[in-house]
Design a protein around this nucleic acid. Structure first.
Lengths: 89, 89
DNA sequence: GCTAATTACGTCGCTCGTAACTATC
DNA sequence: GATAGTTACGAGCGACGTAATTAGC
């Protein structure tokens, strides 16, 4: 599991489409698709349903999405906090 | 920034010593030292004070530590939640 | 046959470990 | 000179992108 994979997951969840998410992340489809597959493999369960139009979240994916967003937000907060301490009040 | 770097940071913070943290992580000192340097470089500020006996947290490091622990805990929670959803509540 | 995702495959970059170096006591 | 951290460097692994493939409409 890596932060990159988590960011990829959130992008695909929000776009519902690997191609669009890839453009948003400045990446091509294959690596992004592999991120999702790796995540699903690691978690031991699919996170998306593959349809002809794209990717739709499964319940496991919905559950993961909430955590994924919190993780990314927490990382952001960590960076800002350190910068705040440093450039210090 | 990667989860590996964050795990490395927490281990060094807790051990106060790169060598011991490396053993705990089943790693050698150099890569672990590089993880910390990379993190400090990315955050734009040192997180530890280097002493003759090891590494002591600076205020910026203390601040980062709280977030780091929360990030890792959140990742754990994400995994367990997905497993819970899957293996059916 | 179009659109979308995935797999194959070669290349480049990253990260490891060993060894050498630097610094502090 | 011992202990601790860092830098040099070569090797192996991993992740990218292009191209080819598979699947559903």
């Amino acid at each position: 599991m890596s932060l990159t994979h988590i960011q990829s997951f959130v992008a695909v969840a929000e776009e519902g489409h690997v191609g669009r998410a890839a453009r948003r992340l400045h990446l091509t489809q294959p690596p992004l698709s592999r991120h999702i597959l790796a995540l699903e493999d690691e978690l031991g369960t699919p996170l998306f349903e593959r349809t002809a139009r794209g990717m739709r979240l499964l319940p496991a994916g919905e559950a993961f999405l909430h955590h994924a967003r919190r993780i990314l937000a927490e990382v952001d907060a960590a960076v800002h906090t350190v910068r705040g301490v440093t450039s210090g009040h």
